[in-house]
Design a protein around this nucleic acid. Structure first.
Length: 588
RNA sequence: GCGCCCGUAGUUCAGCUGGAUAGAAUAUCGGUCUCCGACACCGAAGGUCACAGGUUCGAAUCCUGUCGGGCGCGCCA
């Protein structure tokens, strides 16, 4: 509908241009807005005000000329000039009625489009270190990333959903060592668990598994394990030094191969757990990309070599540094430490370099906002290694933290101490639907207060229930219709749509026609919350209509028309909820 | 100290990328079930868009500064 009007205005402008009224380039995108106030018609165009200056004309005069050259359209009922020079357009009821047929014809495909056709986009999200179960902080990234992916797919992009698995590196070593120490305790050793180790119950579980499988095979006396280890922080030492020494000791006492039994078991169990949680959350990936493969395939070395060749690497204090300040970063970054170990950043350079290499037209990273300082250095590396154009393909979307509230109190959490709310616990408490919906209800860069009591409540202050109820209510009406033995004929309904002339009906129709625009905007701007808010509005239109008018009326034509209309509403609500990963129940 | 994000009704948030009288929900107050599900609807009240400048036909939106909040500033990942 909107694009139709854009064409009309464009045609008028071309007319004026060839008539010599304009001597400047015409803008290629013409803004048509939905009028907020009904007295302004259905759509408003501000083009006359935009072009007033270059045309050296008063906005209203210009608007007159444009309106005079507007081609006739069967969909347009009225065109008026208002205010400082707005062109207000009112559509015919028939133009709105037509949307019902479009919705029912397209069904689940209504709202989908092909504007992204032929373009491949990669969305990497969550990518939490596999050192423990996903917690609620990851939940927002999961819901957001999954929804953005689904939205992009809905507008035609070929979407590749990816989880980057940090299965190499120090944090994983800390985990592996933590598991071994718990295993030793299960085997009967007495020891003081490192303050920087992973203390969650899941570590005990993994250790118990290993102890069942291997009994005391890998038991070592704790006195020997802790012999020569610098003291831990509570004893006045440095917890980092303490844990690093324990890792070294574990590797040397167990031997590389046996150490890997603990390391890999922890990795495998936790990763499977993460995958299961995400699947239960309706989040499925196309690829789980392993950091270890990146390393073993030599891509990290290649990346460092490439940077070295192009002169962006220098050595200082025994370490290799990337001169990221040449590309706008605030300081240079280490890629290889003085002990020869490559940093996480080195892997990330290689990973992103390889991402672009894989031929995606766009690459989206969804990160927690606490990683925002990381963006300049990754972009710096990409710019150093390739061309600027490639770097611009990367979009980093930063998701702010969500604070959970229960009973008006903020829920505290911390991963390392093991006292956190897991994503699984959240879903058990409030349900998948509420979790998915609430997480994307806010703009991602907006800090969010997540009210668990609200998400749980089955009442009108919970927007998700409100929307689902609208869907269930339509289904209920259709059931009632059957029970009352009333017949419904869709073709008759489609042919009787002109009977829909109540304001409530026109409002509902207008919002139904808006759906494809909302999906498009939500997808292209990476803003799922637009869809969430839209659905709330649409549900409101429906509930209002429901309360004001009877659907199951005696007049068969009118009844068919109304039933057809609310079937279309049900379809759009179901489609929208589907894109948000939320179910559309037939009763509740 | 520097960088990024944020500041809109009592509260939680929208505001369509610069448009017309800043909107919802919630809380408060008052109405609506003999009726397709009251998990709903209708109405009232609620605002110095943090503050001060600037840009222009026009600013909550863009620029500068100030204040306030969150996060980040390792040879950690």
């Amino acid at each position: 509908m909107k694009s139709h009007l854009q064409e009309l205005v464009k045609a008028a402008l071309h007319d004026l241009h060839s008539a010599g009224v304009f001597d400047f380039e015409l803008p290629d995108n013409i803004i048509i807005e939905r009028a907020r106030d009904r007295s302004h018609g259905d759509f408003a165009c501000n083009i006359a005000m935009v072009l007033a200056k270059p045309a050296r004309s008063k906005p209203r005069d210009l608007a007159e000329k444009i309106v005079a050259h507007l081609p006739a359209s069967e969909h347009v009922a009225r065109v008026e000039i208002a205010g400082p020079g707005f062109i207000n357009i009112t559509m015919t009821p028939a133009a709105y009625h037509a949307v019902v047929g479009e919705v029912l014809e397209a069904g689940e495909a209504y709202g989908r489009s092909d504007i992204g056709a032929g373009k491949r986009v990669q969305v990497e999200f969550v990518s939490a270190n596999p050192t423990g179960p996903l917690h609620v902080g990851h939940g927002r990234g999961a819901a957001y990333g999954a929804t953005v992916s689904d939205l992009l797919a809905a507008v035609g992009f070929q979407v590749h959903r990816e989880y980057y698995v940090n299965d190499a590196g120090r944090q994983m070593d800390i985990l592996g060592t933590s598991v071994w120490l718990r295993y030793l305790e299960l085997a009967g050793e007495k020891l003081t668990f490192p303050s920087n180790g992973y203390k969650g119950d899941y570590v005990w579980d993994i250790a118990a598994d290993l102890h069942r499988e291997h009994a005391d095979t890998y038991r070592q006396p704790s006195s020997e394990v802790f012999n020569g280890i610098p003291v831990d922080e509570p004893a006045g030492g440095d917890k980092e030094v303490h844990i690093d020494a324990l890792i070294m000791k574990a590797k040397s006492m167990l031997g590389e191969a046996n150490y890997l039994i603990f390391f890999d078991k922890a990795l495998e169990v936790i990763l499977a757990d993460i995958r299961k949680d995400l699947e239960a959350f309706g989040v499925v990936y196309d690829e789980w990309y392993r950091e270890r493969e990146l390393v073993s395939s030599g891509k990290v070395d290649e990346a460092i070599e490439q940077l070295t060749q192009s002169g962006h690497i220098y050595e200082e204090k025994g370490a290799l540094w990337f001169r990221s300040t040449d590309f706008g970063d605030e300081k240079d970054r280490v890629v290889v430490r003085d002990n020869g170990v490559k940093t996480y950043f080195a892997s990330d350079i290689a990973y992103h370099w390889h991402k672009l290499d894989r031929g995606f037209d766009r690459v989206i990273d969804v990160w927690g906002s606490d990683h925002h300082g990381y963006v300049p250095r990754v972009k710096a590396a990409l710019t150093a290694m390739g061309d600027k154009e490639d770097t611009d393909k990367l979009d980093v979307l930063l998701v702010q933290f969500a604070s959970l509230y229960r009973g008006g109190e903020k829920v505290q959490m911390s991963t390392r101490s093991g006292s956190f709310v897991t994503l699984r616990e959240l879903c058990q408490e409030i349900g998948n639907d509420a979790a998915r919906f609430f997480y994307v209800m806010r703009k991602c860069e907006q800090h969010m207060d997540f009210d668990l009591d609200l998400a749980k409540s089955q009442s009108n202050d919970n927007p998700m229930y409100y929307i689902q109820y609208a869907h269930a209510r339509v289904c209920s009406v259709l059931r009632q219709m059957d029970e009352k033995g009333l017949s419904h004929n869709r073709n008759s309904g489609l042919n009787s749509l002109q009977l829909l002339e109540e304001q409530h009906e026109l409002d509902l129709l207008s919002n139904l026609s808006r759906y494809p625009e909302v999906v498009e905007a939500a997808a292209l701007n990476h803003e799922p919350h637009q869809l969430a808010h839209y659905l709330r509005d649409l549900a409101n239109d429906f509930h209002t209509y429901y309360n004001a008018h009877q659907f199951l009326v005696d007049n068969g034509g009118l009844r068919d028309a109304r039933i057809t209309l609310i079937q279309a509403a049900r379809q759009v609500i179901a489609n929208g909820l589907g894109l948000l990963g939320v179910s559309a129940p037939e009763s509740m």
